[in-house]
Write a protein that binds this DNA or RNA. Structure first.
Lengths: 197, 197
DNA sequence: CCCTGTGAAACAGTTCACAGCG
DNA sequence: CGCTGTGAACTGTTTCACAGGG
């Protein structure tokens, strides 16, 4: 997102510009940059390239991280396509599925292995995060297996709350929850309008 | 989630039980229930059926809401499958795509229309929320079209920040952002452990 | 006792407001 | 002037702590 900015010719930018580009307030932007210890000059604003480098240095590790994908349903496939050729520091290097007919397939340079090779591949490929895109009833078991293999972060698309130790970070993405949120606010707006009119 | 609880035989539950089922503190649960004005008895806790009804009454509108899906790529298809036969109050009633080969298909009872019939179908089916599952470069245009047709809430899967009026609610789901979050925390945990050991 | 309900304190995130500087 | 950097105020949320009741 910032990268495209760098190509517009300018190389300096002011906090309020960053602010309305990203939909937050200018004070917010300044505070955030302060927190990651990047300073701009009062005269000219922030240097765009310097900012990009600083943020990358802050967020990215030097060495790329490898991701395992568990479950190659439609969501799994969408994710493989999504992450292919994107951030080279963050790539899905192996996929897993119970369905034997899917094993062996290679999509976007990502090979599908049987689930029982999970631990082996994880160690071999130095994987430390996993994406869970399996049916709800299989999610907990898959999570357990992933954690046993040494995975420290899970992106969970199954609509269940995983029980994991406190040393594992889980991020849930629940389509139903997102949708309800949108539906709720849309409805709420309608009510507001009805009340006003 | 609560529904499964109702079937375990019990019909009363205590705040601290709800608490560690959902991974928050007991005080939190009580405060939340207080906010939606539901009371339990100090003796026996909260009545499960009553709680379900109360929450449903609070969240759901009486009349079901209709959703339009724009873009039938892998994500779109996954969403159709996901929402089919789930919450009857929240269903995808129409899908749209530019690709003419996809138009006319019916998946899970959901028909695909050409994008230029969008406004007509939205009014006809009384749709007020839309899911955007299109490539990034088409997202803003699609959003504009949806809003023009009267949509008040958008669930956006495209990795762009949509520019919309303040009367439209947008919820962004960005796979890259989610993944980076997980990767970041996984890495962070590693650092912690290294420091400790 | 062990619950709920709820003031009151603690905290986190955000915004305001202004000093300081080119 | 207009910008950044930052203390101080504010707002919304989470937690604590305890009264009250079967």
């Amino acid at each position: 997102m910032l990268s495209t900015l760098a190509e517009t010719g300018r190389d300096q930018i002011y906090s309020h510009e960053l602010a309305n580009l990203s939909g937050v307030t200018a004070a917010q932007v300044r505070r955030d940059l302060m927190n990651i210890e990047y300073s701009g000059s009062p005269t000219r604003g922030y240097n765009i390239r310097g900012l990009i480098n600083h943020i990358n240095g802050y967020l990215d590790s030097k060495e790329p991280q490898h991701i395992a994908l568990i479950g190659i349903g439609r969501v799994g496939q969408a994710l493989i396509a999504y992450f292919a050729n994107r951030n080279p520091n963050l790539s899905i290097v192996a996929a897993f599925d119970i369905n034997p007919t899917k094993v062996g397939r290679v999509t976007n340079g990502c090979r599908c292995y049987p689930l029982d090779q999970f631990e082996q591949i994880v160690r071999q490929e130095n994987i430390d995060v996993a994406i869970l895109a399996v049916p709800a009833q299989e999610a907990q078991a898959a999570a357990r297996q992933a954690i046993a293999a040494g995975v420290k972060g899970i992106l969970n698309f199954a609509p269940v709350r995983l029980r994991v130790g406190s040393d594992v970070y889980v991020e849930d993405v629940d389509f139903a929850v997102c949708m309800e949120k949108v539906a709720f606010f849309a409805r709420h707006n309608n009510y507001r309008r009805e009340l006003i009119s």
